[in-house]
Design a protein around this nucleic acid. Sequence first.
DNA 1: AACCAAAGGTTCGCATAATGAACCGTTTGA
DNA 2: TCAAACGGTTCATTATGCGAACCTTTGGTT
Lengths: 259, 259
Amino acid sequence: MGTVSKALSLLAYFNHGRTGIGLSDLTRLSGMNKATVYRLMSELQETGFVEQTGSDRSYRLGPQLLRLAALREAAVPILSVSRQVLRELSDETGETTHLSLLQGSQLNSLSHAYSPRNATRVMMEDAKVLTFHGTSSGMAVLAFAEPDFAETILSQPLEARTPETLTDPERIRAQLDGIRKSGIAVSVGGFEEDVHSHAVPIFDPDRKVIGALAVAAPASRMTAEQKQLIPAALRRAGATLTYRIGGSAPAGFPQDETA
Amino acid sequence: MGTVSKALSLLAYFNHGRTGIGLSDLTRLSGMNKATVYRLMSELQETGFVEQTGSDRSYRLGPQLLRLAALREAAVPILSVSRQVLRELSDETGETTHLSLLQGSQLNSLSHAYSPRNATRVMMEDAKVLTFHGTSSGMAVLAFAEPDFAETILSQPLEARTPETLTDPERIRAQLDGIRKSGIAVSVGGFEEDVHSHAVPIFDPDRKVIGALAVAAPASRMTAEQKQLIPAALRRAGATLTYRIGGSAPAGFPQDETA
DNA sequence: AACCAAAGGTTCGCATAATGAACCGTTTGA
DNA sequence: TCAAACGGTTCATTATGCGAACCTTTGGTT
């Protein structure tokens, strides 16, 4: 691993639960030498990718990221485009909707919308890591990713987040086959208990899957009517989003024209 | 300059006008060796900071930035907090408002809001670089930054973007004194012609200036009434924003209680 | 107030990892 | 049809990053 990768890998230790990390903690987390971590962080600081807080001297992610993310959005406006799609889909279904994108071999939630219709909602946080197994978004992505990629993911140990999480690779493969046929993934309580969610894959101009659009509802609200309405609305919204970002579904992606 | 800084400095060549850059262009722009640029970009690509488009093989900013920016926002929610403040300020003034943040020694526009009240508006783009001289935001920041910082900026050649741009360091220093007294900066056509803008500084918990909040209006709409209303509303909004992000104005910052 | 432990930060000889001139194979367009 | 420009690769040279050990500061305990 080159020096640059090493430095950037340090940024991966930041998350919602740990927004500030001191030098020693970062040394322990990364397993690198303290002097190395110090030098790398100093360089990241010079370039504004991290900053040190005035109070203690712990590091946190820096403002330069905001600028670069805004430029990324200007070049590839997935998030800005998705916001409208998410809002409309939330309005239509009365439930929480979210978009997750594939980044390397990791799936991250990146944008979401709530519906004001119901007092109880599934809550979402942006920049959270989603597992592939056990989330409808993850399954939707896996089903349409390169077969090698799916196999790599399934060959790793699969943790059960809830008693409902499916962890047997063989049964997951069977589900993926079903998703490839239907074009939509369903998960009941596989990531958070009592959450029933649907997801469809999103494709880029090269017809590669880049993420998933999902609707998450409290299981108690999934009436027969909602079980009809949500998948139909979600398919339409997914097709719209893929289209708006200039993408296209791969040959063989099920076109559900019954909706 | 270390390898990490070198790699990250390559990202600085991306901007609104140039969202995709090929290997050879990047080599020319950076003045580095082609093999070096190639290796650095390969590492940035591995970590998702850039990606290569399928069509030509040019690089563009990568999706990892979205994730990290979202985490930065989770830690320091300046943008999300500002959005509400910007919207309210736009509603109140009927004009375009924007927030810019200091990143290193560069001031960048990062968030904005329009008012639907008028058909003609000052248009804004996020992630644009603002000059310090000639923009009200830049002057507001300079006036309350460390004196060394202001002097460093003023000692560099100051480009005149319009005939109205003030480029004489001595006259700029005089203006800065005035801004320190009044707590608000005004610029008429210094960055874009026919744009009249006001700006106030925003402070962090260490009472350091981190950026500026601004209202930009077509010069033709700046009636005597607006010249009263806008500064008053802007001062209130600036104080609110500084407060909401946990910041405080430094001792001696003019508290305009006449509003 | 004396002590200790753990924090952030620094030093310096050594060896690894970055460098760049020159070199491929492809693509493009004159 | 051919040359120029592209992305990508090689390999000897050496600059650069590395880590054990060492400071200095900080905050809590006795």
